[in-house]
């Protein structure tokens, strides 16, 4: 579990410092959210705490305090609650969970900053969720291999 927290910390720093370097049309993937969803799926309750902690960290560098923590906590809790009722080893499930989580996360965060519009939703939120899902497709098997959720 310590390994997971260290990894989440590193990902947080990467997310706020250098991830803009891999931005496609100003859209960056949310690798912290990938770790939160993964943790919630495979370690249930830890997902909520990780979502809150990483959210607080991201909030320190955001325009509005508390929103990332709130969304991270909700996603971590929701996915954790769901994990006991589904077969976790299905990649399609990972993708759906990641896509929906990313959409929900971005809608709340963007809504906290400015009024949402169709154009804004399509341009940033939808493609941002797709990008995060694509990155998650690479990260999930890697995290499984590292077995970071082992207690």
């Amino acid at each position: 579990m310590v390994k997971l927290w260290i990894l989440a910390g590193i990902f947080c720093v990467i997310q706020i410092s250098v991830l803009r370097g891999v931005a496609i049309a100003q859209i960056t993937p949310d690798i912290v959210l990938v770790v939160v969803v993964y943790t919630a799926l495979f370690h249930e309750k830890a997902g909520m705490w990780l979502g809150f902690a990483t959210g607080i960290f991201i909030d320190l560098y955001s325009s509005s305090l508390g929103y990332n923590a709130l969304v991270g906590t909700v996603i971590g809790y929701g996915v954790g609650r769901l994990s006991g009722r589904v077969y976790k080893e299905t990649p399609l499930l990972w993708l759906i969970l990641l896509f929906v989580s990313s959409l929900a996360h971005d809608v709340v965060i963007f809504a906290s900053v400015q009024e949402l519009s169709h154009r804004f939703f399509g341009r940033y939120i939808f493609f941002g969720a797709l990008y995060t899902t694509a990155i998650g497709l690479i990260m999930f098997p890697a995290l499984r291999k590292l077995n970071v959720c082992r207690t």
């Binding site: 809150f52 959210g55 909030d59 509005s64 305090l65 508390g66 929103y67 923590a69 709130l70 906590t73």
Partner: peptide, 8 residues
């Protein structure tokens, strides 16, 4: 979190 949003 809500309190943090308020303080923020």
């Amino acid at each position: 979190c809500i309190i943090l949003i308020g303080i923020g």
